[in-house]
Design a protein around this nucleic acid. Structure first.
Lengths: 170, 170
DNA sequence: TATTGTTATACTCTATAACTATA
DNA sequence: TATAGTTATAGAGTATAACAATA
């Protein structure tokens, strides 16, 4: 096999499969994809789920703040929030003292969906950690938390929303 | 703080920050982003780097095969390969026995760039594992490999190419 | 007739930049 | 004048499907 070429240090590719970095990227994309598929059953995209969680954690923030945390421009946030509002999951409330801003809140229906989301999240976690014992999972958690911390990643809020869209149903 | 609502199990969001799944997605996206930034200095996108590595590991494959492994339709692969060919990094060779297919190969220049890519990959790995001792990194590697294996992820080939484009330079 | 590589087209998404209403 | 939200528009990127050459 292996026809032509071989200039000096060809060898078996750089450091791809071997390294932690590659495995993290691979597993991370895999995890995000599985999660997207799972919550598609709730008619939610990862970004929508992210907003619901953010509103539960800190209600009443402005659209611009939320858009910033989700990594999207305000202009894109508007139709994004529109859909969730039309579905009765979130609510825009005018601020009396500054009538330019909307304070965003979860509705009762939104809270209920968030509970379903929690269950989906737990099942997702189990599916992903199926190859690990409980003790191993704990040790993994410690290491990953330390890495995330040292890399300056915020404890909550957006992994790689941005480019995840729902899949068509063939 | 924390105005309105609180329907039963509101609490502090589902299982986001806590779980392995979320941390993997977060760290994975972070790692992919850092790597993209780094190799942008070599005028390469992650997908381009992926193709170079694939050609080093298994030269002479057809465009359709490669496109499939990269997760892109053949129609998209054509201009993708065109650019790399114009830059003199890869080479299309007609198959004499079946003149429909092109066998793709790295050029000498491509091999040289691959060596630079290897260095970038090693620096990337170090940057990401900065918070870990060597022993911890080894233990992490064992756990991640086992997870990836059990999840059916192929040992090499594409993490989350697809949606990673180069950034504009402001 | 089936398959490789290629081109063309139509569609989705996105960011940029105007616009309005409040301040 | 500056800022929150909104709308409009134009551009990039994509997949789908048609096409040509070869089998």
């Amino acid at each position: 096999m292996s026809s032509g070429y071989d200039v000096g240090m060809t060898a078996s590719a750089p450091t791809p499969r071997t390294g932690v970095a590659f495995l993290l990227a691979q597993l991370g994309a895999h995890a995000a994809g599985l999660f997207a598929d799972r919550i598609a059953g709730l008619d939610l995209t990862p970004a929508q789920a992210g907003l619901l969680r953010m509103l539960a954690a800190a209600p009443g923030r402005s659209q611009r703040e939320l858009a910033g945390d989700l990594g999207m421009p305000p202009s894109r946030f508007v139709p994004f929030a529109d859909e969730l509002e039309e579905r009765g999951l979130i609510e825009r409330r005018r601020n009396a003292s500054d009538r330019r801003v909307y304070a965003l809140h979860l509705t009762g229906k939104g809270e209920a969906l968030l509970a379903e989301l929690a269950q989906a999240g737990m099942a997702h976690e189990q599916q992903l950690c199926d190859a690990l014992t409980d003790e191993e999972r704990d040790r993994l958690l410690v290491l990953l938390r330390r890495m995330a911390d040292q890399q300056g990643l915020r404890p909550d809020v957006h992994p790689g929303y941005r480019n995840l869209r729902p899949k068509p149903k063939p």
